[in-house]
Design a protein around this nucleic acid. Structure first.
Lengths: 233, 233
DNA sequence: AAAATGAATTATGCATTCATTATTAATTTA
DNA sequence: TAAATTAATAATGAATGCATAATTCATTTT
């Protein structure tokens, strides 16, 4: 079962939006476990809402690819597969590339400063081997680049894809060597953005993502094999 | 008011999915008019469903960017603006480019044959100046390329963006000259696909879209000005 | 004891109801 | 008569209710 405790009740305009956000977070954080059923009733009781807005949120998240709805059998958290990953990553690559080009065109000095700050914070985390911290600042950087691109639709589209792989991305640990490489790539990312070199930034971002992709794919493959093992036993 | 008549009642597993599809179609076809409120009750009655699944569908379409939800004031069909267009088109460009590259890698002879068929049908429509027919086959071609790319996530993502601009795209009439150019571009598209030249196909598709973009942008600008005029009168 | 059948329970999908908020219509006031 | 105020009506958002389908559990059968 999932960790449904430690969740407080909610109130605010438009319950279903609040619920959509909450559930999304719970999926990314693994509180709602990939592959498992979404305990609709339990969630409603825990959050103090009725089934109507909850079910609206479930429909939205299903349309978004985070859940699958089985007729008469409720919602299930979509477990990412290698196949899905192979679909999502190239897409994210294309979008990051676009974001890089646009960001170089549109980034303001203030935004650049924000990226630098996240970058340095990320470096500090790397040096102290703080993976969760690194992950958080890393995400901040990529989102800051999206913001700098100044295209809300791009941001939304990208994030909806990113969320689908975020948990896998988080769980798939990098080797120390790969981690160092990732940091090096980030130096290049910052440099390209500072010099407003769109082509270069675009290319590095794409490469950076492809490298991450390789790590995550390997991890998922291991996971799937373990699942199969368990299925046999 | 909108043309809510000529709609038959429905039945099938998962009402909200059926409704989502129906409403999406109604928006693209202009039965639900951009900028106007969605007549929830009337739609429910017309389609013979309760408000619950209807509202689930509305939430999904809102998350998809086709509607906006105003708290306590229902749903409204999102009218596309120049700003939104300027956001959506570059994104579609990046995705079409990706689709082109992947399609050249993965297209089967059978799929290629399907594209050729649509292409020829489209040419026939051009010669007989049949815009609706042209538009339909044109769409078929682009969707066939997506299919050939063999990336379901790409298809879904692209279509969700394409739907948002489809109506404007349909209403924005091309000049005769531009139409001829578009047809010429389509010849190049077919050729690039036949020779599996990913780079070239990718580039042409992007250019093709940018040209379309220019036409649509002009049309929307005119529309917005007319709206403002009406607002003043 | 394992498989098969059937009853009890629970979950699911959708319709209905209800409280609240917005909108319109009617009335009053200046 | 035009603006302001109030009353009415309708719409929205969310909770509840209900019929059907799925699941679980007990019972029977082999």
């Amino acid at each position: 079962m999932s960790t449904l405790d430690t969740l407080s009740s909610i109130e605010r305009p438009s319950l279903h939006e609040e619920l959509t956000d909450r559930l999304r977070t719970m999926i990314v954080e693994g509180i709602l476990v990939a592959g498992e059923k979404v305990p609709e009733r339990a969630l409603c009781e825990k959050l103090g809402v009725s089934r109507t807005p909850m079910r609206e949120a479930l429909k939205v998240l299903a349309a978004d690819g985070l859940l699958t709805l089985q007729p008469n059998r409720g919602a299930r958290v979509r477990a990412i597969t290698v196949e899905e990953l192979e679909e999502v990553f190239p897409l994210m690559g294309a979008l990051e590339a676009l974001a890089g080009e646009l960001a170089c065109k549109n980034v303001t000095d203030k935004q650049l400063q924000a990226v630098r700050k996240s970058h340095n914070a990320m470096l500090a985390c790397f040096k102290s081997a703080d993976m969760p911290g690194y992950f958080r600042y890393n995400q901040q950087i990529h989102e800051a680049i999206l913001t700098a691109a100044g295209n809300q639709t791009l941001t939304t589209t990208y994030l909806s894809l990113a969320v689908r792989v975020r948990r896998a991305r988080y769980l798939a640990n990098m080797s120390q060597q790969r981690w160092q490489e990732a940091v090096d790539e980030h130096e290049l990312i910052l440099k390209a953005l500072e010099t407003r070199d769109g082509k270069k930034l675009s290319a590095i971002l794409k490469q950076h993502l492809e490298n991450k992709f390789a790590t995550v794919r390997q991890w998922i493959q291991t996971q799937q094999e373990e699942q199969q093992q368990q299925g046999k036993v």
